[in-house]
Amino acid sequence: MLIILKKVFFILAILLVNVYICEYINNKLTARMDLRRGYKISGAKGIGFPLVRFFKYISRSEKTNIWTFFIFLFSLLIWGVVPITANLILIEMDYSLLVALTFYIILIILLFFNSGRTSYSDAYSESGKKVLILLSFLIPALFSIASIVLINKTLSLKEIVNSQHQYWNIILQPLGFMTFFISIFLQFKLLGIRGKSYLSPGANIGKEGTGLGKIIEKFSIYMIVFFLIIILNILYLGGWQGIYIIRGEIMLAVKFYIIFVILLLMDKSLGRIDSYSMLIRINWKFLIPVSLVNFIVTFGFLIARDVYNLI
């Protein structure tokens, strides 16, 4: 029991520290990309900025609703099955990948219910469309994941990492990695970590969503992004596998922040999304066919090798 509590404490501490660092990097880097200086009044180089923002939102309103509570719950529950490092996992199971993906889909659906609660009558239909687009980006990601599962013959995230001790899956599945990464990026873009979330339907949602609810929403969006980056790391980039004398945990942190910064840079360089038809086009005309072809090729290769012994 004590070990589990210790693990829970460590996981929460790691998540909170990373949310703080990522919020700071997000603010500072986004400002520098705009040739601005960024937030600077809160201590040296604006280090206290996330804390100031936290108290600012808290001071506005402490009211929450049932959806934000569930979002908070699921954004933490997801880390019960996703291993951050080899030892930092609460529940070890053989099908952790499936459970994690289920939690992720539930989280997105809960975000839809949360973002739709406005005084506008058509708010649900509008945010519903965006959530459906967001969920449709899961299709190429699922095809890519299926290819990885076929190669490694396991649904356990820990075993997937362990099977990459010789070479990372990115070498075996470059196409899968590309589609998975683009799908992550577009999900990142729609979640709107840099500013107002695209899931928010009306112009007044910023006012209506301030307070504790807004903090929880932001926290859950960070959790989703962390989950996506960690899953990308685990599936393609060797997870917590160390290189030479560098410890695996350090390698994971380095890879995590590199991917986060690349996602921020790409988010900024794409600009604001005005037409959702472009996203739908990218998804259905490029990502899904490419990932499907990748899956079929992998499947065919494995059948030829294992069943018919051709290769």
Binding site: M33, L35, G271
Partner: peptide, 22 residues
């Protein structure tokens, strides 16, 4: 255009900011 923008945005990180603290 996306690739071009990416490098512009990346370069901006190392450029001097235009804003000042008045």
């Amino acid at each position: 255009r996306l690739i071009k923008n990416f490098f512009i945005v990346f370069g901006n990180i190392f450029r001097k900011p235009h804003t000042i603290i008045y």
